[in-house]
């Protein structure tokens, strides 16, 4: 299995971003996703900057994928995505069917992001005709369901194989809205947000009235409070037919998780402890996403 680093979901400044990718190059990560996927107003790097960065990273031997917005509403957002798709000739991660359609027309290699709702092999087979090379299952899909799907796909031997990538570590991006919840929390209109989400490098935690951590507010995105962590279960993912495990970016420590996963796969496991209540893996085991099952307990 390969290891990927997902796009940065938060609003980081230029220096933080570039430093982060410089450090990422020193890890054993195989694939790096670049680009803004949450809010079109966040323009730390321009389209040209992302494409330049992609070239720099590719020269270091990592595969680069340019990822795109999850919720596209304005025509300017369409224009931005079209510009990326036309100018970048590598793989595009489509998080909306608008971008999938553009990338298809342009003949690009496509990774279908988790928000494209591919829940069954009939859908995956239909999309295979659009130039799909890779897909990320919906976050809520269980390992059992994924395995059943991949087994049915495998029967079709004539078809070029589509890689399967599973969101394996990090806060789950659970929902996207037209409303900016960071601006709402700060009592500001979205149009005058002053990019205050830059003050929250990991988002803002949201608790129940019993102090149970539930979600993490990140602009228009609502994430899980707990970090999904399938790293201890990587063999289950491998056995289900997963090709790539995605580490989502959160600071600090996500790069450590890349190293940790790689060493687990090569038989030199080092343990990186995480607070038990901050970890979840329920979706993979067919449970509510927030649930955390201990390692080796769940079987497919």
């Amino acid at each position: 299995m390969k290891i990927s680093l997902g796009p940065v979901l938060y609003f980081w400044d230029r220096k933080t971003l570039l430093d982060f990718y410089a450090r990422a190059l020193e890890t054993p990560v195989d694939i790096i996703y670049l680009g803004e996927v949450v809010c079109s107003k966040r323009r730390t790097l321009s389209a040209a900057d992302w494409i330049d960065l992609a070239a720099d990273i590719a020269r270091c031997g990592k595969q680069v994928v340019l990822s795109t917005l999850t919720l596209i509403e304005a025509e300017s957002e369409i224009g931005y995505a079209r510009n990326l798709v036309e100018r970048f000739d590598g793989m595009i991660e489509a998080n909306d069917y608008a971008v999938l359609n553009m990338a298809r027309a342009q003949g690009r290699d496509i990774c279908a992001g988790s928000s494209l709702n591919i829940y069954n092999s009939a859908t995956l087979e239909t999309l295979a005709q659009c130039g799909l090379k890779r897909w990320v299952p919906p976050l809520e899909m269980s390992g059992e369901s994924l395995q059943a799907m991949l087994q049915n796909m495998a029967r079709d031997s004539d078809r070029n194989r589509i890689e399967t990538e599973v969101f394996s570590y990090g806060r789950l991006p659970l929902a996207h809205s037209a409303r900016c919840f960071t601006a709402r929390f700060l009592n500001r209109p979205k149009d005058q947000c002053e990019f205050r989400c830059a003050d929250y490098q990991d988002g803002i935690p949201l608790f129940s009235q019993e102090q149970q951590g539930l979600f993490q507010i990140n602009g228009i995105q609502t994430q899980s409070f707990a970090h999904c962590n399938l790293i201890p279960h990587w063999q289950l993912l491998r056995d289900a037919g997963v090709d790539i495990m995605r580490i989502s970016v959160s600071s600090p420590g996500c790069l450590q998780q890349v190293t940790h996963l790689k060493s687990s796969m090569t038989g030199n496991a080092i343990s990186i402890p995480l607070a038990e209540q901050d970890v979840c893996n329920g979706y993979w085991f067919g449970e509510p996403g927030m649930v955390s099952l201990p390692a080796l307990q769940g079987n497919l």
Binding site: T70, L71, S115, N117, P138, L139, E140, L172, L174, A175, H176, S177, A178, L214, F215, T222, S224, Y283, P288, G289, M290
Partner: peptide
């Protein structure tokens, strides 16, 4: 939330 892309309910 953008409909069909909200997993808040299944998360809990």
């Amino acid at each position: 939330m953008a409909e069909g892309r909200c997993y808040l309910s299944s998360y809990v």
